[in-house]
Design a protein around this nucleic acid. Structure first.
Lengths: 186, 186
DNA sequence: TCTTTTAATAGACAAATGTCCTAAAAATAG
DNA sequence: CTATTTTTAGGACATTTGTCTATTAAAAGA
């Protein structure tokens, strides 16, 4: 986690020590839930090892995967974390996963400790925004087949590591349709 | 614009004076473009009066509306503003529009002038993220008809003020399909 | 106001995508 | 290693949504 912050800004040893003191740790077994819908999300996690997926359940009871996070990436129900309203998402480990955790209090302490943390927080939020925007654009501009094609070309990791049933809802299509698309591509 | 910032944080008279000095003004005629795709977006605008829409063009040449902004809301190609890469969107006035503008330099000056502006910037970015997230969820969870229904129930303003052809692509459907949906609802 | 342009509606048909179901393949547990 | 469960692939058919087009309604310009 430290190295991500340092890639944004040069922090002093003192600032990094404060961070170190605030981080806690946790491991998840495959399939285990980190967050359940209707809980308020009170922590942001950073993945040292493993994969997480976030999903919600639609009116028919189908699980719809909202996003994945891999090693060296952050994950949370950011919407719930920010608004302090109940999360709509569940967050689940897709493999044995090791986490570093910053809870709300810890992050608030960091933010209040100085300008640099505020600035880094803003910049990371901006980057999260840009990522989400790209995903939104892909839903408006592309068909399911084109979104799969894009993953296939630029994010092999997804195709190798994620069960297709999860990938399907992530792409906004049914598993049946993803199977058709894959047949056409290969 | 001032009042939006003040709703986030109590700024001193001095801080607000700095803001005042940095704001510039512009008016747009109906149909006029504020930003064209392939330009880098270098300003964030605040709408005093009027409506803006942001749209991009897909591979078939169709205009796809990405978002709208109304009075007392901000607008920009935030992705381009943040990354300083070329925008994929065009921003256009849907009516006679009056703007307050903060350009990149001005915003940077604000941010560097103190902790409070950094914090407010972070919080506003967080709110933009949450809005975008809601829109993303609506695309994953709901059908086009359900998205229209949601607008109809909770955002009459969109249905009253926005030409249906723009609303259609904003909802991720064709005008033909929107017409069918409206017939079913009424 | 009259004329011209643009926007909205809707029919007929086509294409894309979903539902339901079964069989094979792969992963997991004992 | 075997049995059981889960995942993936794909056939048959249904539904949704898009395309193309024409007509009417509304808006803009002269």
């Amino acid at each position: 986690m430290k190295s991500v912050f340092q890639s944004i800004q040069n922090f002093s040893a003192e600032e990094l020590n404060l961070l170190n003191d605030l981080i806690t740790f946790r491991t998840l077994k495959k399939g285990e839930l980190l967050l359940t819908e209707n809980q308020v999300c009170n922590e942001v996690v950073f993945i040292k090892k493993g994969i997480l997926r976030s999903f919600f359940v639609n009116h028919k009871g189908d699980e719809i995967t909202n996003c994945f996070a891999f090693e060296n990436e952050f994950m949370a129900s950011f919407a719930s974390f920010i608004t302090q309203e109940k999360a709509e998402e569940n967050i689940q480990a897709l493999a044995e996963t090791e986490l570093q955790i910053l809870d709300r209090k810890a992050l608030e302490k960091l933010y209040q400790s100085g300008f640099n943390w505020q600035e880094t927080g803003r910049k990371l939020t901006e980057l999260e925004f840009v990522n989400l925007h790209k995903r939104m654009v892909s839903f408006q501009k592309l068909s399911g087949a084109q979104r799969y094609e894009e993953l296939y070309q630029n994010h092999q990791k997804y195709i190798q590591l994620i069960p297709l049933q999860y990938l399907a809802s992530y792409l906004g299509i049914t598993p049946r349709h993803l199977s058709r698309i894959r047949k056409a591509v290969v």
